[in-house]
Nucleic acid binder design. Structure first.
Length: 1148
RNA sequence: GGGCUUGUAGCUCAGGUGGUUAGAGCGCUACACUGAUAAUGUAGAGGUCCGUGGUUCGAGUCCACGCAGGCCCA
């Protein structure tokens, strides 16, 4: 931007550099601490306590660089905080950093060139101590803080970065521990197990990312079994026996892991899958059987040659053992949901469950892609199995270990336990045996032995080898097992109903995320698995003895007391005692650390005199972030008052991907411990995609650099584009060209409008000092734009209040472009450059114009300031001249009294009529500079007539006609047209509507007159009234007519001599103005004109409009001479349509 | 595979409760304006409203089933 003319009231600019404007405003904010002020000025007094609006910042992780989507997310947050500030609320926003978690650990592993296995190993083996490793994590996690802070500043996100909460700080962890202890005391924190990938040979669980490493999945040939589960004849299963002629009924289930069959406790079917009962023979025992499997998979297991249409086909009787083709026939068909609850006999009854099991349940993961459409379910060896079994109340098959604890039937080495008598001590996977053992000719894998046993017992329908991909441990290269591993859980299911209830009080934007995605998630809640087997995170504050005595620690003080009391017992070893001492010393010195390994080296003594050690788990980082409402204030150890006044949050906003992340953890903790929501309003935002709709990724190179974007376009246009282009919850296809468009369209127009104002205001030394001309006394146009302005304020306020920044922004944009710039300013231009009365004072009209435009611009600056904070401040301060930031003002209050809907309607008619006239002129090549005598507007109602009369002068000047005339019905020259009003006719005539519509369209003019006169009209099918039709005029015979949307105008295109002369005069003025401009004359320079008289028509036209011309071009003289030759070098020739102007123009 | 979501002009998007002629901006074409001027205005062209069925006198809009993209979860 380049400022010209300094030392005037309103700064004028030659050009606009929006990025530079933002940078200057940022400096201003920082120098004047505007953000701090914006919070401070809303501080209440004892008599008038502050209205508070609480916002929670979802902490970003600073271990990566910020992307353009962060600009989007933070713009949303910023908008509503700024808006509420304008509304008079005090909005404190504490920043925060998410510092724990797997991504950070993985990054550190990568940078150190190590794997998880190296952590905690001695250096001599190439390892790194947990202490050093965590130190590295701590350094890494804040590495890009500077970049983040820089972005925060440059994009104009107001948040307190000086006192952020940091999740790795001791105070934060202590608060988290407090919360965990609260849960523990309410019996909402317990130790259970989950099914996880586990490598028996490595003796360790694998994380999902370890499972995703390349080469993990390998094709293997496994022995697979279709097992026959014998149905018990009960009321539930009766229908299966109805047609089975006393033969046994079996449900078929396929498994690629036969070793899990002794742990079977349920069969899972799909609710909507079709199943059939098939009569056939077992291929190994040749017994007649009836089996149940999915209809879609019949052909997978049965040979088409054996198909019998009839259940009683003689083929069944003719069947002999070992016949190649086994006959089969479909007996009946049933939906999966009707199989639910059917009971069956335990397949391999080695171990009895402690609750009823062995029945059919429903699961959403069942497919008919392969197998039999029935899934053999063993809750100890499958994650899906575990989940559906738990939901259906089916117990797992477990045995007791030596300490009395429930354990699965396969031990941690991959061996069957003693209870599985036939296979006790055998590895479940043949790959776990050594190569030598497998080389023995008599060696048989356990799966095969199981298959043989099943065949012999008439429990196997098919045994076959099958090749499929199976995950392997990347360390040992052996197949993994899905295996139950210890985990700590939060019993969210216990509070599910309350969480669902509380959710209904939250205002979700968009609503569907709350009712749908989040609501469904709550409805199907499972217990929250807190455990993570990692190093850098909040340690689980639970200590346990070998016999299961437990204590949960809820504060540093409690920890200290526990350690101290342990020191006074004689149970600890010397080493444990000295570790404890070391910790106590650090605690005393204040330089303690609640992370691993330090808390692992703290030992308690239980009531029964046993050593207690910390459970090695860390907690899910999501608990960290969900704990921020409390932990950010170190609640309840400090700041109880701050917490109490700022909980729950009024507003939060994050990406929709956080639904099950932050949104949930906030909600769960608040609901379970405080019986409250954590937030009242939430905006979940969509993704920022590239301009082709693809996900942005650094790898693909289509990621947009936020710093480059902000540098090129400035933050205001960038923010405005992001907000107004798509609603925040829709995905945004980010295209930088769109920012350019916003810049030209909105900011360019607005800047031009401001500059226009400044130019003339400075010339006239206008200075805004409130409304000196009462609005009621201002011209139509002023009252109209002020009315529009009030409507805009209401609209913007409503949209911001309902958390829709997109509609708020679009409303401002429409006002600026369509109403203010394109109509108000364009039509008012003349008022700004004329209008000085004889005594040199401004006329009231001009004063009104300045005041009106000024008010519109300052109000717009306020309305747009939440979205475009820098530019709005710049504009506001330019306009007010005061050194007061727009962000410290109060949101404008709409003045209802100024809203004149009648006037707004009138002006709309003026715009429509003008548009139609332009269209007509264009069609007849009559340019606007050629004056015409009149437009004719047919009006059927007095209202419309009055409304247009109001704005007739505006129409006349806009389309350059001498008059606006009306024709009404009485004139008799209108040709009317009638159209059916379907909305009214529909309910009345229903199916007959087509006939009615045809009859109405066919009405003659006489018919129409009768309808108008009597108010009703008889049709063959019934009576219609005036309300059932729409009557409009579309034509005036003999006139040039255009119509649109029920409005019709006719234009008198007859150009009289006078009109023609005036048109020529206008053209002449135009050419002179061009000339003035070419010669760089100043706006105030007076001139003399000498014109050669070379055409009579031209001369007549000039003479006839001499006064007008001289005034327009500020000519003190206008002489027509016979011949310009010889009058000097300044003579000019200009083409003007059919004329050739030869003239000389000089400064007077 | 499940839940949620999106699909309207070349591009980005509007289109309360169903009403017969589906809109805007950008881009494109033409013209105008030239005292807001690297600005501005006006007009025009441009559509299988993702598809198929259904409900209805009438569907971009309601219902069902699909197709394609996206997010989350398996």
């Amino acid at each position: 931007m380049h400022s010209i003319m300094s030392g005037v009231k309103y700064q004028q600019y030659e050009s606009f550099d929006y990025a530079k404007i933002a940078a200057e405003v940022l400096t201003y904010w920082n120098q004047n601490q505007v953000f701090e002020q914006s919070v401070a000025i809303r501080e209440g007094s004892p008599n008038a306590p502050a209205l508070r609006f609480t916002f929670f910042e979802g902490p970003p992780s600073a271990n990566g660089t910020p992307g353009i989507h962060h600009v989007m997310a933070r713009t949303i947050k910023d908008i509503f905080c700024r808006y509420k500030t304008l509304q008079g609320f005090q909005v404190e926003r504490k920043g925060g950093w998410d510092t724990h978690g797997l991504p950070i650990e993985l990054q550190v592993e990568k940078e150190l060139g190590i794997t998880k296995d190296h952590i905690g190993k001695p250096e001599s083996e190439g390892g790194i101590s947990v202490e050093d490793y965590n130190k590295k994590c701590r350094e890494t996690v804040m590495r890009f803080t500077d970049q983040w802070n820089d972005l925060t500043q440059k994009m104009g996100y107001w948040v307190d970065l000086d006192n952020p909460y940091v999740t790795y700080k001791n105070e934060y962890i202590e608060s988290v521990w407090y919360l965990l202890k609260q849960l523990y005391d309410k019996d909402l924190l317990y130790k259970g197990y989950t099914i996880q990938p586990y490598s028996p040979k490595a003796g360790t669980g694998l994380s999902s990312h370890e499972l995703n490493m390349p080469g993990t999945y390998k094709d293997v040939r496994d022995t697979t079994v279709v097992a026959q589960f014998k149905v018990k004849p009960t009321g539930k299963s009766g229908f299966l026996f109805f047609d089975s002629s006393d033969a046994d009924v079996y449900i078929l289930a396929w498994t690629t892991t036969p070793w899990t069959l002794p742990a079977n406790s349920a069969l899972t079917v799909g609710k909507d899958i079709d199943y059939v009962l098939v009569k056939t023979f077992n291929p190994y025992t040749f017994q007649l059987i009836h089996v149940v499997l999915a209809k879609a998979l019949v052909s997978r297991w049965f040979n088409e040659k054996g198909h019998q249409a009839d259940v009683n086909s003689p083929a069944f009787d003719a069947y002999l053992p070992n016949d190649k083709v086994i006959p089969w026939a479909v007996v009946s068909e049933v939906k999966g949901q009707h199989l639910e609850g059917v009971e069956y006999e335990q397949l391999l009854p080695y171990v009895q469950p402690d609750k009823p099991a062995f029945r059919v349940i429903l699961g959403d993961f069942v497919t008919t892609e392969d197998g039999t459409g029935v899934v053999h379910t063993s809750p100890t060896f499958g994650a899906d199995d575990f989940r559906v079994a738990q939901a259906a109340g089916i117990p797992p098959i477990m045995v007791k270990d030596e300490t009395g604890k429930d354990v699965p039937i396969v031990d941690k080495h991959g061996l069957f336990v003693d209870e599985i008598t036939d296979f006790a001590g055998r590895y479940v996977k043949e790959e776990y045996y050594s190569d030598e053992e497998r080389a023995d000719p008599d060696f048989k894998p356990t799966d095969v032995l199981i298959a043989i046993k099943l065949k012999e017992e008439n429990k196997a329908f098919r045994v076959e080898k099958y090749e499929h991909p199976y995950p392997h441990c990347w360390r040992t290269d052996k197949p993994i097992l899905y295996y139950p591993l210890d985990s700590w859980f939060i019993r969210t299911t216990a509070k599910k109903d309350r969480l669902v209830e509380l959710n209904k009080t939250i205002n979700w934007q968009p609503e569907s995320t709350g009712t749908g995605r989040f609501g469904n998630w709550l409805e199907n809640l499972v217990d929250w698995n807190l455990s993570r087997s990692r190093f850098w995170g909040t340690p689980l504050p639970i200590w346990r003895s070998e016999t299961g005595e437990e204590v949960c620690i809820g504060s540093v003080d409690e920890l200290k007391k526990r350690v101290q009391s342990a020191q006074s017992s004689d149970v600890l070893t010397d080493e444990q005692r000295s570790k404890n001492n070391a910790f106590l010393e650090k605690l005393g010195g204040g330089d303690y650390d609640l992370h691993r390994p330090y808390v692992d080296e703290v030992y308690f003594v239980s009531a029964s005199g046993r050593v207690m050690q910390r459970e090695s788990d860390l907690i899910d980082v999501w608990f960290d972030s969900g704990a921020m409402p409390y932990a950010q204030w170190h609640y309840p150890f400090e700041n109880q008052d701050v917490f109490n006044r700022s909980f729950p949050a009024d507003f939060i906003s994050e990406g929709v991907d956080q639904t099950r992340g932050w949104f949930f953890t906030l909600h769960a903790i608040a609901g379970m411990l405080f019986d409250s929501v954590a937030f009242k309003n939430v905006v979940s935002t969509g993704l920022v995609l590239d301009k082709n709709g693809n996900k942005m990724s650094k790898r693909l190179g289509n990621a947009v650099d936020p710093f480059a974007t902000l540098a090129q376009y400035g933050p205001d246009a960038t923010r405005w584009y992001m907000i107004t282009n798509a609603e925040p919850w829709d995905n945004l296809k980010f295209n930088t060209e769109g920012i350019g468009e916003v810049q030209r369209k909105l900011f360019g127009t607005l800047s031009n409008t401001y500059n226009f104002f400044a130019l003339y205001a400075n010339l006239d030394a206008f200075s805004f000092a409130g409304r000196s001309i009462p609005v009621a006394e201002r011209p139509e146009l002023d009252r109209w734009i002020l009315s529009k302005l009030q409507s805009l304020i209401l609209e913007v306020e409503e949209q911001f209040d309902s958390y829709n920044p997109t509609k708020a922004g679009r409303a401002v944009q429409d006002f600026v472009n369509d109403q203010l710039s394109n109509w108000y300013v364009r039509l008012s231009r003349r008022r700004f450059w004329s209008g000085v009365s004889s005594d040199g004072k401004m006329t009231a009209d001009k004063q009104a114009a300045y005041e009106t435009l000024h008010e519109c611009l300052t109000t717009v600056a306020q309305l747009m300031s939440p979205i475009a904070p820098f530019y709005a401040d710049w504009l506001y301060q330019n306009l007010t001249g005061a050194n007061t930031s727009v962000h410290l003002t109060n949101f404008p209050k709409a003045e209802q009294a100024l809203i004149d809907t009648e006037l707004e309607t009138s002006m709309e008619l003026a715009q429509d009529v003008s548009s139609l006239v332009h269209s007509l002129r264009k069609g007849h090549k009559l340019k606007v500079r050629q004056p015409l005598s009149r437009v004719l507007v047919p009006v059927l109602s007095a209202d419309t007539r009055r409304q247009i009369e109001h704005v007739a002068p505006i129409i006349m000047s806009e389309v350059n006609v001498k008059g606006v005339e009306f024709v009404d019905d009485a004139s008799g020259i209108l040709k009317k047209k009638v159209k059916p009003n379907f909305k009214a006719l529909g309910p009345k005539f229903g199916k007959q509507i087509k006939d009615v519509a045809a009859a109405i369209t066919a009405m003659s003019e006489d018919d129409l007159k009768q309808l108008e006169a009597s108010g009703s009209w008889q049709l063959p099918v019934g009576v219609i009234t005036l309300a059932d039709v729409e009557i409009l005029t579309e034509d005036i015979p003999g006139w040039l007519v255009a119509s649109e949307g029920g409005l019709t105008v006719a234009l008198d295109v007859n150009v009289t001599d006078e009109l023609r002369w005036e048109g020529i005069a206008r053209d002449f003025v135009n050419r002179i103005q061009n000339l003035r401009k070419d010669r760089d004359f100043s706006v105030t320079d007076k001139i003399t004109i000498v014109l050669e008289r070379n055409d009579d028509v031209l001369a007549t036209a000039i003479e006839a409009n001499r006064d007008y011309i001289q005034q327009e071009v500020q000519a003190v003289s206008l002489d027509l001479v016979g011949d310009l030759n010889g009058r000097g070098p300044l003579a000019t020739e200009i083409d003007m349509d059919e004329f050739q102007l030869r003239l000389q123009v000089d400064k007077a």
